[in-house]
Amino acid sequence: MSNLIKLNNNVASIVDNEWAVVKLPASQVEARKQAGKVVLFKLTGEKTVSDEQLTNTVIPDTGKVLIPLSVFIARKTELQTRINQGDIGVWLDTHEVLAELVEHQADLNQLPIIAVHVERFADGRIFSLGVLLRTRYGYKNELRAFGDVLRDQLFFLKRSGFDSYLIRADRNAEEALLSLKDFSSPYQGAVDEARPAFVRYNRVT
């Protein structure tokens, strides 16, 4: 059964996943350490993909595929026809920089889907990426979170502009649906509802 939740007109339901994620081939880089601990979060803007990985990434010939941002940038020419057909989406990691995507794909809405991969659920950069895609870059199509996506972050993801959530495979998406309704009337304006409570309501003393 699918573990993909999608919002449609603010109604959430579990739907089939028609997008295959293209992964980068594994790299040889050893785990980095800081203060004696293995570093769990990559620095924003850190270059983590080698030229070899870019060349060796296997892109299926057909079907709807999500391409890693670095591969998309490096091999855009060979993908152009399929981009025009709407068969190509882009995914990026939380440490990657949106400006690079925009630089190479001026019209983001030519992409039917953008996905952000969150390696660890505690990495809150994903929220700012969602907000920027929606409010700064005017992206209107499907915005998906995948990776370490758990129900207790769903409400924040929704408010940050994500409308598609691939719940981690070992968790129950049916139960996760409930967390989208954790709060019925939040205080601050955000992507899903730009007006703060003090604008939405006549809050009298």
């Binding site: 505690a122 924040f156 940050s160 955000a190």
Partner: peptide
């Protein structure tokens, strides 16, 4: 109020 459950700054 603004900072309470601010979605972008939750983590």
């Amino acid at each position: 109020q603004w900072s309470t459950f601010h979605p972008e700054f939750a983590l």
